[in-house]
């Protein structure tokens, strides 16, 4: 026999969910908007006619002007707003990505262990989370910034370190209910050890709610970063973020409204898109719940 028996490929639950997500117009649109904004923020600055940090004293706070290549106008010291917004998006997305990665890694492992192992260990682990929760977060970040100086890496870590608390709680709840499912008992009977069970059975089965939570965390992190930058605790000049741009634009709202409108619209578009995507993912993963 030369030809191998033809395998029938199965459709995993993930593939099913992906198909449902593709059929959801709002979610697909949202994903497209995010992709376009992200792509622009990566390649845009190279293609744009002006660098982000050059001061053009001849063109201070001018309105959008295609002839000189200032597509979205300039800011109070004559820097090209278009490029600066793209840099702002870069920072916002990077912060979101880094903070979410940190919170995912810590939150999933921590929550899954606490929820599955249970008992005293769970008790101790979750008390620790409660204690961290009760610390005033803004205060915590501000102290970090004051002690270590304004440092973007630090901000990533600080945001992630706070976001993982909620993630750990969500994951723990999921792990606790999974623990009583029969297939976990079957894995014990099959001789699987606790770490194997957590890795092979618990974590893959709780990723659904986690993915949903992630799509909701991203806009939240972007907002917090904007807020910190607005307070002057975020990134440092000449680098910028959407929060910084909005804060600067707010000062010039009456004389140069585009300085507020364009960054604010970009932020709003990003936040909307992530929220739509989050809704879509939730529906796709849990089709009964509609």
């Amino acid at each position: 026999m030369t030809a191998a028996v033809e395998q029938i490929a199965g459709r995993s639950l993930w593939q099913d969910a992906l198909r449902r997500l593709r059929r959801n117009r709002a979610a697909v649109m949202a994903l497209a908007v995010i992709a376009v904004i992200a792509l622009l923020s990566i390649v845009g600055p190279w293609a744009a006619p002006h660098p982000y940090d050059t001061l053009n004293y001849d063109y201070i706070a001018i309105a959008p002007n295609l002839a000189h290549g200032f597509f979205l106008g300039t800011d109070a010291v004559g820097r090209d707003l278009f490029v600066r917004i793209l840099y702002g998006v870069r920072i916002s997305l990077m912060v979101a990505l880094a903070a979410t990665t940190v919170s995912l890694t810590i939150g999933i492992v921590y929550g899954a262990v606490a929820g599955y192992v249970g008992g005293r260990i769970d008790e101790a682990m979750m008390r620790f989370v409660d204690v961290l929760y009760s610390l005033p977060f803004m205060f915590f970040v501000i102290i970090l910034m004051v002690v270590f100086g304004r440092n973007i890496i630090l901000m990533f870590l600080a945001l992630g370190a706070v976001e993982w608390l909620t993630m750990a709680r969500i994951v723990r709840g999921q792990a606790m209910s999974l623990k009583n499912r029969e297939f976990i008992e079957a894995a014990v009977a099959a001789g699987a050890r606790t770490p194997t069970i957590i890795r092979r059975h618990i974590i893959p089965n709780l990723l659904g709610p986690v993915v949903v939570y992630v799509t909701l965390t991203i806009p939240q992190v972007i907002l917090v970063e904007s807020f910190l930058s607005f307070l002057g605790l975020g990134v440092q000049e000449p680098l910028t973020s959407l929060g910084v741009l909005i804060s600067e634009g707010a000062d010039e709202m009456e004389t140069a409204p585009w300085m507020l409108i364009f960054p604010a619209a970009t932020l709003a578009a990003l936040l909307f898109s992530f929220n739509f995507l989050g809704d879509g993912v939730r529906d796709a993963l849990d089709p009964k719940d509609r």
């Binding site: 099959a190 092979r200 893959p204």
Partner: peptide, 23 residues
């Protein structure tokens, strides 16, 4: 754990006893 090779179990709810994420 080593003894489990000699004794196995079949469950009442067939679907619930299979991990939905695995082939």
């Amino acid at each position: 754990r080593r003894k489990r090779r000699q004794m196995q179990i079949i469950f009442q709810d067939p679907l619930a006893s299979l991990d939905p994420r695995l082939t």
